[in-house]
Design a protein around this nucleic acid. Structure first.
Lengths: 187, 187
DNA sequence: CCGTTGATGTCAGGAGCTGACATCGCTGGC
DNA sequence: GCCAGCGATGTCAGCTCCTGACATCAACGG
């Protein structure tokens, strides 16, 4: 056994989510989170850039899955279809509906956290646009297709969270994508 | 003459923009801004919720113009065309290219400000979606059309900022919207 | 066996932000 | 004209977020 308990980062994440759910984001201090994880405030800030970031550690992995699928789409696939492949892959990763619901309830209750979530989604969008350009898609088509794709994800995620307990995110994504195409092709 | 100089809010906004441009957002303290405006830090926080908000006071007005035009679009217009009308109206309001460039240079240099900007754009998107629903558009079409519209605005604004000194935002919006339709109707 | 490394702790301090209360010209009723 | 209340601002204390500098000490490698 080492000098310290293992997995400090994970303990901090769990402690933070528990306390945020229990008493709210604003009413929880970083000192309390660290204390609950058996660490100090200073160590918290060595793992996370700020008090919000602790809720978004999974976004890096999600991004890898997303752009991996976009990059791996058939070479002749249209931009929007490559994006669709990426979204579908994300839908395959996000399977823990109860956890997503708890996390989202915390975020929905706090504007600062909503800002950070928007920033994360924007990062995803930028990464997708970069990947599309790597496939030869020109601007501004790459950015527009990426942004539209992220919009589809947001809508789908929300419907998944608010849907039945046995709902599958991938299905909502499929439906919303069809809606997007219908909407933008109008007129 | 009153007990105090008039237009405290405006003086704070101007002082903040000047200092942010001059020495950067992070290197400017609220106390310095207030001092430059002939006020105290406490008064700054009476006018603005936080240090970032002082750069976004115009967004409320912009939102009114946007949703006013969306609501005023011909009754039989498709959702995406109502959104297009709103974007065009915004393009008519944003005419001061040099000022937009200075402001945007500050925002681009600071992640915290980019987060706030994303939040403001998200607010616009939500307002547009609400207005579309008021026109009888169902979900998720309303949200998707609104999000796609905001994506078009972002792309257009960026191209306007980076374009020639005599560029007109409205023209970039027109072009980007056409691109969006082309991209999403593919496959 | 010892020097280095790396995760953590300790401490001091600046800056953002808030609540409570004070100040004092201005305004309206009398 | 006088006075009471209002409202914009100031003053002050204090919490929390976040950072830099330095200390600690088990584990690891030579």
């Amino acid at each position: 056994m080492g000098r310290w308990q293992p997995n400090s980062r994970g303990r901090l994440e769990q402690a933070a989510l528990e306390l945020y759910v229990e008493r709210g984001f604003a009413q929880t201090t970083v000192t309390e989170i660290a204390r609950q994880a058996g660490l100090t405030e200073r160590t918290f800030f060595r793992y996370f850039a700020d008090k919000r970031e602790v809720l978004f550690s999974g976004s890096a992995e999600l991004q890898e899955v997303l752009i991996g699928a976009v990059a791996g789409a058939p070479e002749q696939a249209a931009p929007i279809d490559a994006v669709a492949a990426g979204l579908d892959a994300m839908g395959g990763v996000l399977r823990d509906l109860p956890r997503s619901r708890r996390r989202q309830s915390v975020i929905s209750a706090n504007p600062e956290l909503q800002e950070r979530e928007l920033a994360k989604l924007a990062t995803l969008s930028t990464a997708v646009a970069d990947t599309l350009r790597g496939r030869g898609v020109q601007e501004p088509a790459a950015t527009l297709a990426a942004d539209a794709g992220i919009a589809v994800f947001r809508v789908s995620f929300e419907r998944w969270i608010g849907g039945p307990d046995d709902g599958e995110l991938r299905r909502f994504i499929k439906d919303s994508l069809a809606e997007l195409k219908a909407v933008t092709s109008a007129s």
